[in-house]
Amino acid sequence: MAQEVRGVIAPGKDEPVRIETIVVPDPGPGEAVVRIQACGVCHTDLHYKQGGISDDFPFLLGHEAAGVVESVGDDVTDVRPGDFVILNWRAVCGKCRACLRGRPWYCFDTHNAKQRMTLTDGTELSPALGIGAFAEKTLVAAGQCTKVDPGVSAQVAGLLGCGVMAGIGAAINTGEVGRGDSVAVIGCGGVGDAAIAGSRLAGAAKIIAVDIDDRKLEKARSMGATHTVNSRENDPVEAIRDLTGGFGADVVIEAVGRPETYRQAFYARDLAGTVVLVGVPTPEMKLELPLLDVFGRGGSLKSSWYGDCLPSRDFPMLIDLHLQGRLDLGAFVTETIRLDEVEKAFERMHEGDVLRSVVVL
């Protein structure tokens, strides 16, 4: 029987979000209903609100979430009611060419729930990243649910659902940061700080944080940065080279998603070094680089999709590291808020005052 719950929707482009009654259907084959315990406020949600991702309004916002499975549909065997899970937006199919080649983190046919949640008047909602977790309950594909140790707080666990996993994965999975490497991270928001934390976890010897905001650079140090560069005051390429013996960093992670910062990353890496783009550009952005430089500098230019993570592999591992005290996920939570405070959280995000506001239900 369908249920009615409270949820936060974006009704139209740049309109204030509001709380509405959401109708959540019973799970069909391959689907699950999850009772949400906590959900982070991610910049991607703001992109949805601003119409920067699509115009398929109204959106049911929220996607960095953790909660408890309430019910499952037919043919669901990996999770069952009562399981504590983190939601992910890349449920792998197991059948596409990437999955069949043993690279499911690149799955080219990820999927979401087939049914739509609606408003009480029958208006279909578009769930953010196929999740829609600024709600008391949500409907997802069962493959979007990853079981983890229930001893972890939902407030921190849900952050692996997007930004924190993207940053950690950009360092560990995509950049393949290793012991003794030098790493530079350009852009010290939530994703950049997670890349710093991931680089420290991987054993990097030198981690250089680059940003234009001294407040963010101070936070980056607490996450594991060994050096900081204010790129409003200093040339970041020269600063990174100076800090690495004149050579450049082994791995440079660009967590902004702009042509000018990507160029900085490209020239701040050592010969045969690696550039990882994890910041998300907008459709109109163009990049121009001398092709001879691309050839002559060698190495790898990589894009990182969701930290190239495999949720079933990475989420339980990172939660275990957190519970062992080796990865402080709690450091990413700036504040906890209510559902009716999401609009204010977007305003604080603009001001650069928070890493993550987390809605607690």
Rank of each mutant, 00 (worst) to 15 (best):
D45Q: 14
F346H: 03
D293H: 13
V76Q: 02
D121P: 05
T334W: 12
E351N: 10
W89N: 08
D78F: 00
V278T: 15
L327R: 08
E15Y: 08
L327S: 04
G94L: 13
N234W: 00
V85D: 00
V278W: 07
I86L: 11
C96A: 12
E351C: 03
H63M: 09
G143Q: 04
L289N: 03
D26C: 11
R326Q: 13
L119T: 07
F295L: 13
G245L: 03
A142T: 03
S357D: 14
L327T: 07
A38T: 09
L125P: 02
E254F: 02
K13C: 12
M1F: 07
R116I: 04
G175A: 03
R258P: 00
E4D: 09
Y262D: 03
L321V: 06
A128V: 00
G296W: 15
T261Y: 00
G190A: 15
I208S: 04
A166E: 04
G352T: 00
G161V: 05
P311H: 13
R35P: 02
R103M: 12
N88G: 10
E260D: 15
Q324A: 14
D328E: 14
L339H: 14
N88L: 10
L277G: 08
E64S: 07
P27D: 10
T146D: 06
E351Y: 02
E176D: 13
D340K: 15
E284F: 11
P281L: 15
N173A: 04
S357W: 01
I22S: 08
K49T: 08
V229D: 06
G67N: 00
V358P: 01
I253E: 02
